[in-house]
Computed example of a mutant assay.
Amino acid sequence: MIISVEDRFEKLYMDLKAAGHEVYKLSENKTSEVVIYSGYNTHIAAINASSLTSGNTGVFLINGDNKDAYQIDSMLRNKTYSSLF
């Protein structure tokens, strides 16, 4: 799974890389399945998700504000924002 992280999340970027994820900075415009953005600095409508994905698979958008790598990793494994139960 390829993950793009907004540039301001340097610690999250490094922690996800250390956990073994394939992670790029959003400014690199890498085709990604997951985009982690900041709601404080970026309006969701400003993210051009169509340029970040290939085909019709879509992009899993995650607001990374106040989240650590463990929480993000859990979201990625479950493909959900929080527990369903």
Rank of each mutant, 00 (worst) to 15 (best):
M1E: 08
M1H: 14
I2G: 01
I3D: 01
S4L: 04
S4Q: 02
V5H: 02
V5E: 08
E6D: 08
D7T: 11
D7C: 07
R8L: 12
F9L: 08
F9E: 00
M14D: 13
M14E: 13
M14G: 04
D15Y: 00
D15C: 02
A18I: 07
A19E: 14
G20N: 02
H21L: 02
Y24A: 06
Y24N: 15
K25N: 08
K25A: 09
K25Y: 13
N29G: 07
N29D: 10
T31F: 01
S32L: 04
E33V: 01
V34F: 03
V35Q: 04
G39Q: 07
G39T: 04
Y40I: 05
Y40P: 03
Y40W: 08
N41L: 10
T42K: 09
T42V: 03
H43W: 00
H43N: 13
I44S: 09
I44R: 10
I44V: 13
A45G: 00
A46K: 05
A46E: 13
I47C: 08
I47Q: 05
I47M: 04
I47V: 09
N48L: 09
S51Y: 01
S51K: 12
S51N: 07
S54R: 13
G55L: 08
T57N: 14
G58Q: 07
G58T: 06
F60R: 05
F60T: 00
L61F: 06
I62N: 11
N66A: 11
N66M: 11
K67P: 04
K67D: 01
K67E: 11
D68P: 02
D68Y: 10
A69M: 01
Q71N: 09
I72F: 01
D73G: 15
S74V: 10
M75P: 09
L76C: 07
L76K: 08
L76H: 08
L76G: 06
L76A: 10
R77V: 04
R77Y: 11
N78A: 14
N78H: 12
K79T: 07
K79A: 11
S82I: 07
S83P: 03
S83G: 14
L84R: 12
F85W: 06
